[in-house]
Nucleic acid binder design. Structure first.
Length: 194
DNA sequence: CAGCAGATTGACT
DNA sequence: GTCAATCTGCTGC
């Protein structure tokens, strides 16, 4: 089973639920004919204009975060700390800047290529590491997740509710009370295998 | 193991 | 100028 997630999956209004449901989905990239992929094991939801941790808080709109305002099923990739390319899945309708940050994957297809991209380091647990392993960079910001080089697929991998850990997001201490929201989801470490 | 500093660009005061 | 949705290598226990 291998089904590219349809537009309808991304257009939903409940970004927090979408973030949780992305656990177990497969993130694939096709870069110059080289296809790599990983099973998503950690995500964070960013709830747009009302979320102090979001780049789109209070409707902030810049050249960088413009893809957040595209329709669901668009990639938003931005540079963090000047070095790391962080990949987000845009959700909801056009002009509603919801997004889900992909924080970790377990390598699936072409693990050797990912290892090369990571300069021999095998870990892919961290948003910067995910992008490096899969070849994602800011040039892919704004690309389509249904027709473009980056896609998400349902390959029938299911994560049991009991295996999902929930907690506050990482690195958003500046976000006031919103820093405490339980918008981070990850597969329990003991269940990271297929 | 913990703690910390450096990397390096974009957004904002 | 300051801080940021981070990662790495080095220091010192």
């Amino acid at each position: 089973m291998r089904r590219t997630l349809p537009r309808s999956f991304y257009l939903r209004a409940d970004v927090v639920n979408v973030a949780r449901e992305l656990l177990g989905m497969v993130l694939t990239t096709d870069m110059d004919g080289v296809a790599t992929s990983g099973i998503i094991t950690e995500t964070e939801a960013y709830a747009g204009a009302v979320d102090q941790a979001s780049h789109a808080y209070m409707g902030r709109r810049t050249d960088r975060n413009e893809p957040m305002y595209s329709r669901g099923g668009t990639a938003y990739v931005y540079l963090c700390y000047g070095i790391h390319h962080l990949f987000n899945v845009v959700t909801n309708k056009t002009d509603i800047p919801h997004a889900v940050l992909i924080r970790a994957v377990v390598p699936l297809d072409r693990e050797v290529t990912m290892l090369e991209r990571r300069a021999g380091r095998p870990s892919t647990d961290g948003p910067g590491k995910v992008s490096m392993a899969l070849g994602i960079c800011t040039a892919h910001s704004g690309t389509d997740l249904i027709e473009g080089p980056i896609r998400l697929e349902d390959r029938g991998i299911r994560v049991a509710p009991n295996d999902v850990l929930t907690g506050p997001r990482i690195g958003v201490e500046y976000a006031g009370s919103d820093a405490l929201l339980p918008y981070r989801f990850r597969v329990a470490p003991s269940r990271l295998r297929r």
